[in-house]
Simulated assay, not measured.
Amino acid sequence: MKALIVSAPADRPLAEQIAAHLDAELAVAEVRAFPDEETYVRIDSEVSGRQVVVVANLVRPNAKVLPALFLAETARELDAASIGLATPYLPYMRQDARFAPGEGLTSRYFGALISRSFDWLATIDPHLHRYHSLDECYAIPSRVAESATPIARWLVENIERPLIVGPDEESYQWVAAVAQKAGLPSVIMDKIRHGDREVKVTGSGLPPWTDQTPVILDDIISTGRTMVETVRHLREAGLKPPVCVGVHALFVGDAYQILRGSGVERVVTCNTISHLSNAIDVIGELAAAVGTFIED
């Protein structure tokens, strides 16, 4: 029996892509708000005994988590054999430590919440910094699909003489993976953060790379301040206008416009979050991760 892909209407295009990759069935599902804004869900497809995949892009998660949880619990009561969550962007990963007394460790709280309703989780490049794996905050099996191969392929096909630049040590894991797969040189900058929107980027060793096209690579572009500051540092060092590449295109407020106006050649992102900068398709990688669960 084919796996059943379930989603809210907003995530239907993503669900269709994943279903096509896996030759799975798309469920007939209804998710809507009552007049008082409470959530109504209904799965009008045969669920009993089937492997169910709830597809939900949890970017800006607070309005999206409850419908996903309710779909999972509905499938559970309809006697699904298993219920997994496929989300290209996994939120609540950056608060992975208490930086000030009294702060909530929301990454762990969110992990516990998801783990209560789902049997497994598949996502793309979660922001793992102080955590070594999702097992440290999720009590269910997980698969992490990596964007490194599609990004490396895109760089080789589209950029002349790329130099991959990581704006800080947190970007090292993505920079190293892409550089290795593409056979490209890389450097890592140093970053000092003074607040959510104020950073300082420094680094040495750039002058030998003045004939290269710098490619600033990071997993999340949120306020864009880190990349803007990195662009400024690279231009002051005499390098060419850089290409900025991000896995997850959050772009809070006017961040995209600010980054585009900072002296970059181009801004490119993966399609984990729908944005006009999307140029690198990674949904096949997510579908493959989902497939490891439903084919077991």
Rank of each mutant, 00 (worst) to 15 (best):
A3K: 04
S7M: 06
P9D: 04
A15I: 12
I18D: 01
A24G: 09
L26F: 05
A29E: 00
F34A: 11
Y40D: 12
R42L: 14
R42I: 12
S45D: 04
V54F: 03
A56I: 06
N57V: 11
A68T: 08
L69G: 04
E73F: 12
A75K: 05
R76M: 05
E77W: 08
D79K: 12
I83V: 15
T87N: 02
P91S: 09
L105E: 04
D119N: 12
W120A: 03
A122S: 06
H127D: 06
H127E: 04
R130P: 03
C137L: 14
C137R: 15
R153H: 13
L155V: 15
L155T: 15
E157Y: 11
N158G: 01
N158H: 13
V165E: 03
G166C: 00
Q180L: 09
Q180C: 01
L184W: 00
I192S: 11
H194N: 09
R197W: 10
Q212V: 11
L217E: 00
I221R: 06
T223L: 05
G224D: 01
T226E: 02
T226P: 02
T230L: 01
C244D: 08
V252Y: 10
A255H: 06
Y256M: 13
Y256W: 12
V267L: 13
T269W: 06
I273E: 11
H275S: 15
S277A: 15
I283W: 06
G284Y: 11
A289G: 05
F293M: 07
